[in-house]
């Protein structure tokens, strides 16, 4: 049962990889990277149960945090062409 779930995650990772390789626009690639990260997290969790050590769940939680921050950083880079813009805008700023 868990093995079937792991197989499904591997197939999903392969599909995301194809999208990241051939994705015509940049946003396809960002979305592919983000959802591939999610599939990796799920695969890590399943892997922990398959190997009989559910401690791996802690690691997958950390990966989820990194994945989220990385996606925010990439999208912010696209919007502002810079990392030095604060995410929360003050009322007086233009743009």
């Amino acid at each position: 049962m868990i093995g079937a779930a792991a197989l499904a995650f591997v197939i999903a990772i392969a599909l995301m990889l194809i999208r990241a390789l051939y994705g015509p626009t940049l946003y396809d690639r960002v979305l592919a990277v983000n959802s591939l990260g999610t599939k990796i997290i799920l695969l890590l969790g399943v892997m922990g149960f398959l190997l009989g050590r559910p401690d791996f769940l802690d690691i997958s939680v950390l990966y989820a945090l990194i994945n989220f921050v990385a996606t925010i950083a990439i999208l912010k880079f696209f919007r502002y062409r810079s990392f030095q813009v604060p995410l929360i805008r003050k009322s007086g700023d233009r743009q």
């Binding site: 990241a20 994705g23 690639r29 960002v30 990277v33 695969l43 892997m47 994945n67």
Partner: peptide, 27 residues
């Protein structure tokens, strides 16, 4: 840009592989 995205994926997948090899701190 595609290369940067793919290198991010590469790191994530190789980190998963390190976990599979029990090198959790390296991962």
């Amino acid at each position: 840009f595609a290369i940067v995205m793919l290198s991010g994926i590469y790191s994530l997948v190789s980190a998963t592989w390190f976990v599979a090899l029990d090198a959790v701190d390296v991962a």
